[in-house]
Amino acid sequence: MTEITVKIKIGGEFKEFGYDGDLNISVTTLLEKLGGIEYSCSCLQGLCGSCAMVINSQPKLACQTFLSDEIMSHEYELITIEPLSKFPVINDLKVDKSKLYDDLMECEQWLESDSKINCDDIDFEYEMSLCLMCGCCVEACPNYDGNDFVGTPIAVSASKLISQETDSNHLKTLKKKYNEKFYPHCVKSIACEDVCPMKIQTQRAISKMNKKAVWKIWQLLDRD
């Protein structure tokens, strides 16, 4: 067993803990062993996205992040754990990610019609549907500040809906919201794709939305 130092940001300050147990455990298990630290969790299987936090300066799912991997990759016996910085802290490592869902509502990320299925798009649409709304992508994004920019979750969601929607008015709304709330703000740093725990190819979603909503000249003529 290797003795390690665990530094956890609580109330804006780092508190230091010692740990000398098994390193083949996840960060969520570590937090349970340390005790008394509040954080969000649900499935503990990397399927819900609740336990996203910043571990050794990178946004990750705590249930999928193992101490042994972190120690080996950083080559020293220290692990830092912080709450996501782009959302209000509720307590300890628990944050309020409700803005992600508010943005879905504001950008009308739903279907107003029966879904149109294109067999050529099924694999792409399935991949986009894997988004956990965990917040890792916006945490890594250099431009996301919780204000006008809605972040990658909207691009991922819209890239699926825009192929399925058959209501022409709502299709225009999806494109308009993307143009207003995403396109002018994204600098294509690809940080979102690098940290996505589901390995979603976010740049494919962004490229598809840019092609559908921005680069078609007939959009300037107010055509569908």
Rank of each mutant, 00 (worst) to 15 (best):
L171G: 06
F17Q: 10
E165L: 09
S168I: 15
D148R: 08
K116P: 09
L220S: 15
K94P: 12
K172G: 14
S57D: 15
L132M: 04
C186I: 08
Q64I: 03
D120N: 11
I25S: 00
E82G: 06
T166P: 07
F182N: 04
S50G: 07
I206D: 00
T80D: 04
S73V: 14
D148N: 08
V195N: 01
D92Q: 08
N143G: 09
T29V: 15
L61M: 06
K175F: 11
E16K: 13
S26L: 07
I37Q: 05
C137H: 04
F17R: 03
T65D: 02
N147Y: 11
Q201P: 11
N91R: 15
L161W: 01
E70M: 07
E139V: 00
S40N: 09
I206Q: 00
A140H: 03
R204D: 12
F124C: 08
M133H: 06
I217E: 15
A158I: 13
I90M: 03
E77Q: 11
I117N: 02
T166G: 09
S85I: 05
L132H: 03
G46W: 02
N147F: 12
L111D: 05
L30A: 05
M209P: 00
E3W: 03
A52V: 00
V95N: 02
C119M: 13
G151L: 04
E127K: 03
S68N: 10
L93P: 01
D22C: 11
G146A: 02
D224A: 14
L220A: 13
Q58G: 02
D120M: 10
S189Y: 04
S168P: 04
D96G: 09
E75L: 12
E32I: 14
I190L: 12
K7M: 13
E13R: 13
K188M: 12
N56V: 03
V195G: 01
L93N: 02
S163M: 12
K160H: 05
E127L: 05
M133R: 03
K60I: 06
C131D: 03
S168R: 06
L221Y: 14
L67K: 00
C63Y: 01
W215Q: 14
E77D: 15
T152I: 13
D121T: 05
C196H: 01
C51F: 01
C41K: 10
S113L: 12
C107V: 08
G151K: 00
Q64F: 08
S50H: 01
S98M: 07
S207C: 13
I117W: 02
T5P: 03
I10D: 06
P184W: 05
D194W: 04
I71E: 02
Q203N: 12
K211I: 14
E165F: 07
E193L: 06
S50D: 05
D167V: 10
L23I: 11
V6E: 01
E165G: 07
S129N: 08
R223Y: 15
L161V: 04
T80I: 06
D120P: 08
I206H: 01
I162L: 07
I200T: 00
E32W: 13
K15T: 14
A158M: 09
S42A: 14
D148Q: 09
V89A: 04
E106D: 14
N143A: 10
M198N: 08
